[in-house]
Amino acid sequence: MLRAYKTEIHPTEEQKKKINQSIGVCRWLYNQYLAKNQELYKQFKEDLISKKEAMLSANNFDKYINNEVKVLEEYNWINLCGSKARKKAICNAETAYKRFFTGKSKFPRFKKKNKSDVKLYFPKNNLTDWKIERHRINIPTLKWIRIKEFGYIPINSKVVSGTVSKKADRYFVSVIVEEKLTIENKSYTEGIGIDLGLKEFAVISNGIHKKNINKTANVKEIEKKLKREQRKLSRKYESLKLRNKKEKGEATRQNIQKQIVKVQRVHQRLSNIRTDYINKTINEIVKQKPSYITIEDLNVRGMIKNKHLSKAVAQQKFYEFRVKLEYKCKLNEIELRIVDRFYPSSKTCSCCGAYKKDLKLSDRIYKCSNCNASIDRDYNASINLENAKIYEVA
């Protein structure tokens, strides 16, 4: 099976310059593809062209760049990026635009400089490409780069492809390798149900409660620091408007760029804490070796529309939890059951099966009027998810 490994790298100044230039080229090509198709789509809406002509394919756009744009002297900088990375950026833009063109999503966003996550794609074309040693890795066109975590990527593994990315002034490499799947000790226990929420991150039907990491003192202190750094950045922008741009403009812009990196680092630290907590929670669940796991198909997009809960819902990373849980369940041959989002897991009594229609969101204890049972609302929902009979297998 294919498995991904991501770790930080320490490139030289020359390699950093090449990575930054290549990321800039890929970002420009991504935006140009969207802009070109946006013009065609407007012409289609005005009945000037047919629907087939309203979408430019990635291959045709790549030919247009190679034959008409790149030959011009003012666009020679496009050659600073490898051809495979350029083609992959255009293909990513095509995938995003197809989702909009078929009505599955909104029009994709244009990638902004220093704000959007742009990755450089490098396939393995030669035997010397993606050669891995304990402390360094050979990336195509970039050559040998030192790895931060020694021995993290398996040395004897077969690399299929990889990407290089930059985030908060730090550089990362992600490689996809082929590995043999080995499962040890297939002794499974009973199935479990998991109810995700905001008060507590996850309540499991076997009695385990996973706290909300965003309510801890450590995360709250970092969020306060983020506010302070964002306030400093905002004041620097305001001072740039008031000062004389000719005298102190360049120095002010350099200070703004330094402050942007500080804000990005705090954002990344918060993201790393939440992702690490999700990974540890999933690992703890899978180690119990349940015969099946049942979760609810949450309407995260609808929950985020609530202005009072949108920030709290986004911080919980429910979608990331589900994606990683699916991967771990397939890896360990555990059946993952997805229950419909309209299943009344919270309003149904887990003891007698009675339905309580007037249950409010503020009622944290479920009190059944039929059997007089009194149970925690989230724990009651997790038991109902475990016993659900109608579900889909992920």
Rank of each mutant, 00 (worst) to 15 (best):
T252P: 00
T252N: 12
T252M: 09
N255I: 03
N255H: 08
K258P: 00
V261T: 05
V263F: 05
V263G: 13
V266D: 01
H267T: 12
H267F: 10
Q268Y: 07
L270E: 01
L270H: 06
S271K: 13
N272D: 15
I273S: 02
R274T: 05
N279K: 04
K280T: 11
T281L: 12
N283Y: 13
K287T: 03
P290M: 04
Y292R: 09
I293S: 05
I295L: 10
E296T: 07
D297S: 04
N299D: 15
V300T: 14
G302K: 04
K305W: 11
S310G: 08
K311F: 03
A312F: 06
Q315R: 12
Q315I: 03
Q316I: 03
K317Q: 14
F318M: 07
F318I: 01
F321I: 13
K324R: 15
L325Q: 09
E326L: 04
K330R: 10
L331D: 13
L331W: 14
I334N: 01
D340C: 10
K347N: 04
T348E: 04
C349L: 06
C349A: 02
Y355V: 14
K356G: 09
K357T: 10
D358N: 15
K360L: 12
S362D: 14
I365W: 02
S369E: 11
S369R: 05
N370E: 05
N370W: 07
S374Q: 14
S374W: 04
R377A: 09
